[in-house]
């Protein structure tokens, strides 16, 4: 279940949206392709409403590179579950960026600061961001509401390139969630 953000203190800087940070870990040996088991692995860490609340949480959770095994951080707008079945995601898609080991923590921080700071300027299109830690590589994803809106997805791509500070030759791939479901890749 999601949690309410704590009361905002005097002097806190409010964010445009409230966000929830989730964590999931694939249990070894278990088949976890169904949304039921994925749902049960999702743990809500915290919902926050201000910059200061974000930093408080962020400084208390392990950074992505410190985690071992197959696990994910999900930072989504409050009220949107980090799964394609959510009504905000069902027509959406994601930009995926595969990263060599060693880059994920810095890139994840760059990505979420851009999301929280409203740097994408695509209205309410951004749903959330995911850091996926895997054995051979790590993957960053940025989810938006409308996969069919090319103007929005290219604008997101340009902002991603600017804020992430990743090598020029990094491959960025866009996938509609409906395609990920069809090819069973996510």
């Amino acid at each position: 279940p999601r949690k309410k953000p704590p009361p905002v203190k005097d002097g806190d800087h409010l964010l445009e949206y409230h966000y929830t940070l989730w964590f999931s870990r694939k249990s070894p040996g278990k088949q976890s392709s169904s949304s039921v088991s994925y749902n049960s692995q999702l743990k809500c860490i915290m919902t926050f409403a201000s910059i200061e609340q974000f930093w408080l949480i962020y400084s208390h959770v392990a950074r992505p590179h410190e985690l071992s095994g197959h696990c994910d951080y999900h930072l989504f707008k409050d009220g949107i579950k980090p799964m394609w079945e959510d009504e905000a995601n069902v027509k959406g898609g994601k930009w995926m960026i595969r990263l060599k080991k060693g880059l994920i923590s810095r890139c994840w921080e760059n990505l979420i600061l851009a999301v929280l700071g409203e740097q994408f300027i695509v209205g309410n299109e951004i749903c959330g961001a995911v850091a996926s830690m895997r054995y051979q590589e790590d993957i960053l994803s940025l989810w938006n509401r409308t996969a069919s809106n090319n103007e929005v997805t290219s604008k997101i791509r340009e902002t991603l390139k600017r804020v992430l500070n990743i090598p020029q030759n990094t491959i960025m791939e866009y996938k509609a969630h409906t395609d990920s479901i069809k090819d069973n890749s996510s």
């Binding site: 002097g11 806190d12 445009e16 910059i51 400084s59 600061l113 700071g117 409203e118």
Partner: peptide, 21 residues
Amino acid sequence: GTRIVYDRSFLLKCRESPLAQ
């Protein structure tokens, strides 16, 4: 309406604030 926009350096500066500790 107006959106609340923050750049990276401002967000990082807020990390130093006592409220974020």
